[in-house]
Simulated scan of single mutants.
Amino acid sequence: MDNRPIGFLDSGVGGLTVVKELMRQLPHEEIVYIGDSARAPYGPRPADQIREYTWELVNFLLTKNVKMIVFACNTATAVAWEEVKAALDIPVIGVILPGSSAAIKATRHKKIGVIATPMTVTSDIYRKKVESLDPSVRVTSLACPRFVPLVESNETGSSLAKKVVYETLTPLKGRVDTLVLGCTHYPLLRPIIQNVMGPDVKLIDSGAETVRDISVLLNYFEINRSRELNHKQDVFYTTAGVASFQTIAENWLHQSISVEHVSLKEALSDE
């Protein structure tokens, strides 16, 4: 047993889609979450900057004595996951491999679409991962730079969101039978995405698929939290405004949560 919390990092609120699934599958595990909304979105940023920001999030989580770190962000996974995983002595999980594996299982005609941030698409990591697992699959990737700002500004149900999603996804319509939501922000737009793509297209939530891997690793390393501990204190940190983060988080998670503002540079300089 290991009763320390699991750490989650994301560029903002998107990683909450992974947290929601963890709460469903592993409700006894304790969570520390850091969302860098002040610097979101990460997708259009250069790789070196994403790497720098990701390490700041990782180092912040390490100050919270976490037993595992989950990259609940596709962009950070694409740019920095391998490097961080190699450097730490605790398990570090990314969202790309689980999403790729699930898409291969789901596709009927071997036509998979991936929607993601510009950096994730530029890295070509989903296509490489999918084709390494099944070379017969054809992958079509599309950058959706306007999606994350919609989610971060809590406009997921607006007429603007419907217009942006429709305009962005039109090039993929009729070309794929499976669509990977290759950014953890995108499941918050899922109803609109499904409506645009049509009912026959299977949507793959890479973050939700990742929780299965978390469960496997907790068992493998024997670091599950004791089920005899009834009380747990999940804590969520944001680098931007608490009120906006809390509104989005509580609407998505359907429960009250504890949210604190943090300045990463100050927090890390105190260590």
Rank of each mutant, 00 (worst) to 15 (best):
D213Y: 11
T54Y: 08
W55Q: 06
Y126D: 02
E152S: 05
V92H: 00
V242G: 06
A143R: 03
I257N: 06
L188P: 01
V196D: 07
R225A: 14
D234L: 03
A243P: 04
H231I: 14
Y53C: 05
L181P: 00
F60C: 07
W252D: 00
R225C: 10
I257S: 07
S159C: 09
G12H: 07
A72N: 01
M1L: 15
H109W: 07
N230C: 09
S37I: 03
S37Y: 04
S215V: 04
A76I: 00
G15L: 01
L188H: 09
D234F: 00
V180C: 02
T156N: 09
V242W: 08
K67M: 08
D124T: 10
Q233R: 11
S263A: 12
N230V: 11
L57I: 02
R127T: 15
T77V: 04
H109S: 15
T210H: 06
K129N: 07
N74V: 05
Y33N: 01
A102W: 09
V216I: 13
R225E: 13
C144P: 01
S11A: 09
A103E: 01
N74I: 02
F60W: 09
M68E: 04
L179A: 11
A267W: 02
M119P: 03
T120P: 06
V121I: 15
L133C: 01
Y166G: 15
R212K: 15
Q255I: 02
S256F: 06
V84E: 04
F8E: 00
A267E: 08
Q246A: 11
D89N: 11
V92A: 02
H109E: 14
N219T: 13
R225L: 09
H109F: 13
T178S: 15
L9A: 01
R24A: 14
R146N: 12
R4L: 04
N59K: 13
M197P: 08
G12E: 05
V114I: 14
L150E: 05
E21M: 12
R24E: 13
R225P: 07
R175D: 05
G174C: 08
K20I: 07
G198V: 11
V201P: 07
V95N: 06
D200R: 12
K85W: 02
N230S: 12
P27H: 13
F221Y: 12
M68V: 03
E155S: 12
L133Q: 09
V13I: 10
V137T: 14
G94H: 04
M197G: 08
E260Q: 13
N251S: 15
A38P: 10
T156F: 07
C73D: 06
W81I: 05
S11R: 08
A106Q: 12
H28Q: 15
L169G: 06
V211R: 02
K85G: 05
T140S: 11
A116N: 04
T117I: 04
K20M: 10
V180P: 03
G35H: 08
D200E: 14
I115V: 13
M1N: 14
G174S: 06
R225G: 12
R225V: 05
V32N: 00
L150T: 02
Q246S: 11
